[in-house]
């Protein structure tokens, strides 16, 4: 059995909503770039990184990825700047830098 999402749409005010807010598409948290909430960003010094992966393990957003050289850094599209990675890094390779425009 499958849900016909078109039957669930209602226009209210200026927008369209569905019954209970259900959505047929998955992955909206990938499309919504939530990194704009951040006030500090983690910058990895890749020369210092020892590829231990601890930052990857403790990141509550799951937004730290490994590059081809096995070095870890945060995807700033989604990173909220909590600083846990910088705090936990055993070789202090991650620095929290203030966001400025």
């Amino acid at each position: 059995m499958t849900i016909d999402i078109n039957k669930l749409k209602t226009k209210v005010g200026k927008v369209e909503v569905t019954t209970g807010g259900v959505l047929k598409s998955e992955g909206s948290s990938v499309r919504n770039k939530t990194g704009t909430w951040r006030s500090f960003k983690p910058i990895t010094n890749k020369d210092a990184c020892v590829s231990c992966g601890l930052c990857w393990a403790v990141c509550p957003e799951g937004c730290i990825h490994k590059d081809q050289a096995n070095k870890f850094s945060a995807d700033l599209d989604y990173c909220k700047g909590c600083g846990i990675c910088a705090n936990e890094c055993p070789v202090k390779a991650i620095t929290m830098v203030k966001e400025e425009k």
Binding site: I3, T19, G20, V22, S25, E26
Partner: peptide, 14 residues
């Protein structure tokens, strides 16, 4: 309006 099914995914409670 809602069936959680891995074969036919939906987002509930966004």
């Amino acid at each position: 309006h809602a069936i959680l099914d891995p074969e036919d995914p939906m987002t509930l409670g966004p």
